[in-house]
Each structure stands twice: as C-alpha cells, then as structure tokens.
Design a protein around this nucleic acid. Sequence first.
RNA 1: GCGGAUGUAGCUCAGCUGGUAGAGCGCCGGUUUGUGGUACCGGUUGUCGCGGGUUCGAGCCCCGUCAUUCGCCCCA
Length: 422
Amino acid sequence: MSTIQPVRGTHDLIGENQRRHSHVVSAARRISALYGFGEWSTPIFEDTRVFSRSLGDTSDVVSKEMYSFSDRDGESITLRPEGTAAICRALVTNGLTQSLPQKVFYAGPMFRYERPQKGRYRQFHQIGVELMGAAEPQADAEVIALGYQILQDLGVAEHVTLELNTLGDAASREAWREALIAYFSRYKDQLSEDSRVRLEKNPLRILDSKDRSDRALVADAPQMAEFLTPEASTFWDDLRRTLDNFGISYRVNTSIVRGLDYYNHTTFEFVTDKLGSQGTVMAGGRYDGLVKQMGGPAVPSVGLAAGVERLSMLLDTAPESARPVIIVPVGSPAEGTVFKVLQSLRQQGVYVEMGYRGSLRKRMERAGKQNAAYVLFLGEDEVERGVCRIKHMESGQESEVTLDSVLSDAATFFLSGEKAAI
RNA sequence: GCGGAUGUAGCUCAGCUGGUAGAGCGCCGGUUUGUGGUACCGGUUGUCGCGGGUUCGAGCCCCGUCAUUCGCCCCA
C-alpha cells in the first residue's frame, strides 16, 4: 500500500474510542473538581532540562525514551513524557509558590519513545492531579481517595487494587539503598543480568524483578521498614490510618518503588490484571524535592497520573452516542415550515437532523441507523392543518401534535428523560 | 533495546501438495416517495502490508523491510 500510515505508536481516536476517551477525561475532571482541583494546561513541549533535571538521569524515561530535538535556535526541546515536572515548572515560573497550596488537574497527550504494545503507545494520554504545598499525610490520602473515586465513577474500581508503599524520607531512603546495595552485591553472581545492571543504576528496582532467582533473593532482602526514621515511620502510620478513615482498602507492596527519581514517602499504584503486562492503570506518590529542583522553594507535594488509554480499555461498555430527533418531510410540505421547525428545535437545545434524500422508506431506514429517538413527520396534509406527527422509535407509537406546540415548547416532546436532549 | 506470533475487501476470516482471489457481516440501490429495526432481490469492494528472489507460474516457498500483537525491559 502506498497510503501513508500513522507514525508507529500513534493512533487516531474515532467513534467509540473517542467516546470512551472523552468519558474518562471528563469523569476525572469532574471528580477532581469535587476535591477542589482546578485545571491547568501547560505546553506540550518544554525545555529539555525540565525533564532531565527532575526525573533522574538514570531513569529509562530520560536515558532512552524522550522525544527530544533541537529547534531552530539550537535549543533542546522535549515533547513532555509526563505531566508532573511541567506542572512544577509552571508553579515556579508563574510565581504561585507564593500562594500555596495549589491543587491542579491536567489532561493531555504525553510522548515516550518505547516499543508499542497493548495499552502502551508513543503518544498516549494522561489525566493527573497535583497537590502542591502540603506536607501532611492527609494530603496523600486525599489524592488517593480522589483517584479511587475516579475509578469508582468509571465503574472499574472492582477490577483494580490499590498497592501502597513508603520510600521514607531522604535519610531513610539513603540508608535503605545502601543496605540493599550491600546485600545484593554479596549475591551478585546469582542475580539476573538485568538486575546486575539495576544494582549499578537503580538498586531499588531489583525488588520489582520478575526473574525467578531474583525473587528468591528479594524475599530475604533488607526491608524498608527497618530503615525508616521516626518521622518517616509516623508519616507512614498516619497515612494508613487516614486511608482507613476514608474507607479505602489497600495492599502494602514493598516492591512499589516507582521509576522516577523524585518520589519520597508515599508511592502507590492502582493495578489490574486485565491489561496483560501493562497492569498499572493509575499511579503516583509524594515528591517533596521536585519544586526545589525546578528552581523554586521547597514545596512538599503529592500527585497521581492515570493512563487514559488503559482506563478506556477497562470500561465495560462504550458510552452511547447521542440520539437525534430526525425530521422527515413527507410529500412536499411548505419548505418555509420545514426549516423553521428544524432550526426552532435546535434553538431550543434539541439534537435534530433532517432526512431529505430518497424514498420515505429510505429515510426511515436511515433514521433507524442513526439510532434516532424520534422521527418527526412533516406531512404535506398535516402541515396544511398546522400539525405534525411524532413517532417514538423504540415503541413505534405515533401521535399528532400541533406545530405551534413544537415550536414553542419542544421540551415537552423531546427532552423528558430521553437521550435526544443535549 | 531483546525474543515469539501475525499481516488476504471497511470488519471477521477462508483460500488444498505453488496454477492469474472467496464467504459472512457492512455499505449502496430496489420490493410504485405516507413509515425504520425482520424478510426478499440486485450491486459494490482488493496493486493478497511493502520490496526483492526462486519458478513457465507466488496469496502460498526464500530473504529483507514495515506494521500489529504477546512477553522481557520500563512505564500510564
């Protein structure tokens, strides 16, 4: 084929897919508003340093997955691989570190140069929230509760479990990290090839390994809990207690370490077994040091992000498209009347289309295919008498009403409990 | 970046040991322009992913390439 194909890992959102997608985004936006999160939109590309500085040089995202290029001035630009770093940059550059806390919702495309798979694309979409300027574990719980409510609202909560972990504060994390390096170094020859690389780059990731012999070693590895400072320990206890009070159940999973370097204290993932190996559907954590790395003051923060494509795939049913009222002229009714009715209904907020091609039979057939809620017949004879016929498509029932009543109060006929209304 | 599978009509797929492409669904039209979702009749659709090779002849065999998909890595 000589037709041009979409770029690898990109996809068009059309019809049912777009409806699923929109449904996920608008649900997330609506629920976020209930928790006081307002929407920000930041640029789709940023100075490369926004990401290289924040995500960690050894993270895969920075080391091999960024879509970076030089613009015409030779400046290094990167298509955003995630949302948090950009939101933090926006917080700083807009001077909003003076008015904390800030509660932000965002939605939009992200870009990572990866091998595409089901639920993983090179251009994909995320929704996310960031609560910046709150050091208390209650903030973490609030963000998790918000995420959970989004999943509930979408009807996918029962397919998803919350896995929770703590990385402790900087001191705890460093002590643990060193203990892990010491431990795994002792068994270096038993580690998988991947994990030997991890030992150099990011030893915490070994805990997440799926390799059989790695798992055996991991079972006896030093636990984070042993290294928590008293402060970090209190934070962890408070978080779990607050989640209990929110009525949110979770499973502690000490292998949730997250791939991006900026996390501390809380990390969590909502995972499902319905998407193959792309099981993480929503994830986040606390990042107390990130805003400072962006050149701002220390602003303790917590947030989460979710993959819209993955959530869309979990939706049991696609949202239905709106059902129109379809006007079908029969015979040759006065044109003036036909268009007057058509536009009047639209002005009154009713979704209407007109069928004016083919035989009456054809017009009805098309109305059926468009899943019309009603057909409004404007028959030549009726129009002369000042009336029209309205057919309810599901029941097939038909009734005659005056044109005046349709023109003055369409709601009576079309907006009550029917999807024809928008 | 690594390993496996798969690419035939808009969709789902069939196509024998190589002999110049089929079905169902959909789509369009019709069953006298006053009534759809059922039924019947007719019609439409392809450079068989792309490029090369073997052969008298390739959808089928070989090589390459691109894409999709599953797993690994990583991540939403």
